[in-house]
Nucleic acid binder design. Structure first.
Length: 400
RNA sequence: CGGAGUGUGGCGCAGCGGUAGCGCGCACGGUUUGGGACCGUGAGGCCGUGAGUUCAAAUCUCACCACUCCGACCA
């Protein structure tokens, strides 16, 4: 990608009133743009990061046997009445009517939808377990959107749903997803603390949150630094002596529902005695746009973002020295070769000062910075965004 | 939803009764070029919306809308 063509350009100033670092940096560097309170456009750089986050999640969930689908975002009122959540969850639900006065909800979650889907297709106990997930938009009528992209009214989430014949099989999978989540967060460079919490409008049961420590976090948790396990303040009971208090961001949450929803919606299988039994059901969410914010919160310095390699929008940021004809043609050649080899390169081909290019490179935070100038001769200077050392290597070594 | 703020060129801000200005950005010309270069010229705003007060409103009053922060609530 040529930086001269990249939309939009970086900005020197943060938006008025922005406090959270993720908000300031993601907007300045051109990753996100606000439409209204709690509603954001993912710009080319931001969307590339989301794509990579999703890919990590996809790989780990597929390993658990889950299959990816995509469900609708506008739902009929009737399906929400089956569980009573049309009324019970009306605080978070956006509702609308069409021109014939038919009522709909905009999706804030998909339990009802997935259960409807499965009851239509579940034919035999042999079909279980069923594990389905999708990446899609969630609409939630938040009383207050805040923290940049950390809490929006419309955001992206990966939600996984699993249905099982037996309680044992359900809990085994619940543990398997817990491990998959820890792997996902670890691969993204994040340390997640498993936190016991309340279930909100989802369940009376305790749920398991995956919390990332961060000063801007809205959640207060108490955790044991040794085991990296804790409890949310909402269920803290004062007896946990070794626990320390910390602010954290909830990046994921998994919910054991038992047979509560499947009973209400009539999702049954027939056991060997010929009796109908409700399926065991759970749901598992990771807020992917929130993760974009979490990563920005965790990985930055006073000059800008510092993306972990696995989610970086590009791997290399190639800079041609300004005002040097020879360097420009060498950089052009390296850009073409690197691109051809499949490497993801952002090539700063702009007619602007070196200071500007370096400042933008630091702001955007691509892991490897390459500079080609008269000073580098036949070689290329390489520097990591996370470090200070520069090194000269040949274009051949680079291509290897 | 309670509390506190803020809405003025693309962005960040000043002006707070006499008819709009600064910085950045942008355009053009020139000089520059390894850490957000410099000089010159120029374009760009019914001052959030609507009512009112006044000879006169960006400025005062009222209503509404939007956004931000704190709280409550919540992924």
């Amino acid at each position: 990608m040529r930086q001269s063509q990249l939309f939009p350009k970086t900005s020197r100033q943060a938006p008025a009133g922005a406090i959270a670092e993720n908000h300031k940096l993601l907007v300045r560097a051109g990753f996100i743009d606000q439409l209204m309170a709690g509603s954001w456009t993912l710009l080319p750089l931001g969307w590339r990061v989301i794509f990579k986050i999703n890919q990590v999640i996809r790989e780990e969930l597929n390993k658990t046997g889950a299959q990816e689908i995509l469900m609708p975002l506008m739902h009929p009122k009737e399906i929400w009445n089956e569980t009573g959540r049309w009324e019970k969850a009306s605080g978070v639900m956006y509702k609308l009517k069409d021109t014939r006065e038919k009522e709909f909800a905009l999706s804030f979650t998909h339990e009802e939808i997935i259960l409807d889907l499965v009851r239509k297709h579940l034919q035999s106990v042999a079909d279980l377990p069923i594990k389905l997930y999708h990446f899609s938009t969630k609409f939630r009528n938040e009383p207050r959107a805040t923290g940049g992209i950390l809490r929006g009214r419309e955001f992206l989430m990966k939600d996984l749903y699993s249905l099982h014949a037996t309680e044992e099989d359900f809990w085994n999978y619940y543990e398997e997803v817990t491990r998959a989540y820890l792997t996902i967060f670890a691969r993204l460079g994040l340390k997640a603390i498993i936190t016991e919490a309340a279930g909100g409008v989802f369940t009376e049961n305790r749920t398991r949150e995956f919390q990332i420590l961060a000063a801007v976090g809205e959640d207060i948790i108490y955790y044991d630094p040794k085991t990296k396990k804790g409890v949310n303040k909402e269920v803290f009971d004062e007896n946990k002596k070794n626990f320390v208090e910390a602010h954290a961001i909830e990046a994921g949450n998994i919910f054991p529902f038992g047979t509560y929803y499947s009973d209400k919606m009539g999702v049954y299988y027939t056991d060997k005695d010929g009796k109908k039994k409700p399926v065991w059901f759970g749901s598992y969410g990771i807020g992917t746009t929130r993760l974009l914010g979490v990563l920005a919160e965790v990985f930055h310095d006073d000059r800008g973002l510092i993306w972990p390699e696995i989610v970086a929008p590009f791997k290399y940021h190639l800079i041609a020295a300004s005002g040097q004809q020879l360097a420009a043609s060498k950089a052009e050649e390296i850009y073409k070769k690197l691109s051809k080899s499949g490497a993801e390169v952002l090539y700063d081909d702009r007619d602007t000062s070196m200071g500007q290019k370096f400042a933008d490179a630091d702001l955007i935070g691509i892991p490897h910075r390459l500079v080609v100038s008269d000073k580098t001769g036949d070689k290329v200077e390489i520097k990591q965004r996370s470090g200070n050392k520069t090194e000269l290597i040949s274009p051949e070594e680079l291509l290897d």
